[in-house]
């Protein structure tokens, strides 16, 4: 057995992982090798020293602090969920309002009217659309987290665009009808 193998076995013997034969071989090597003997003594001393060091104790309120952090986490999660629900309801309400307005506008446009009135209606629809976009933008940018803003934008902006497209097509059809007449 060379010194490197002896060192490897010293580590294993400290964990009771050597067979009786391996232990005997190691002891035989140690008797004839003063360098390994010194290493073995140092290893035994340091192992004994470490085994004597007891478990460190935490502060008495560790469990309380963990419970407190869990409680705060749960509150934050509930608050975020509440904000999402409110935003969704708000978004749905706005989308409903916009759809209703557009539908009303479209119904109005189905009625025969002078050419000048059509332009006035279009201008008003654009003004309403612009104001709504501004309000949505303010709402989205004032929200606490980016993903909420993204959610609002993702839901409402396409809805608004659809409404505007719908109104635009309705106006186009009305104008065509008037030109045909």
């Amino acid at each position: 057995m060379n010194c490197q193998q002896a060192k490897w076995r010293m580590s294993l013997i400290l964990d009771s992982m050597l067979s009786a034969d391996e232990e005997r071989a190691l002891q035989a090597h140690l008797i004839h090798c003063p360098i390994c003997q010194a290493e073995w003594e140092a290893l035994q001393s340091v192992s004994y020293f470490l085994t004597q060091a007891p478990l460190a104790s935490p502060a008495a309120d560790l469990a309380f602090r963990v419970e407190e952090r869990l409680r705060r986490q749960r509150e934050r999660r509930r608050w975020a969920l509440g904000v999402v629900v409110v935003c969704l309801w708000l978004g749905l309400a706005l989308a409903g309002f916009m759809s209703g307005s557009a539908l009303l506008g479209w119904l109005l446009l189905q009625q025969p009217m002078p050419v000048g009135l059509e332009i006035q209606l279009l201008a008003r629809l654009l003004l309403v659309g612009q104001a709504t976009l501004r309000a949505l933008w303010l709402l989205a940018t004032s929200l606490p987290s980016a993903w909420l803003s993204a959610g609002i934008n993702g839901c409402l902006i396409p809805a608004l665009m659809l409404v505007c497209l719908w109104a635009w097509l309705a106006l186009g059809r009305q104008r065509q009808r008037m030109l045909v007449r």
Partner: peptide
Amino acid sequence: KSRLFRAREQLARLWR
């Protein structure tokens, strides 16, 4: 085993 061996080697050196 290898980690413990190397750690002990280092600890023994520090001890000495």
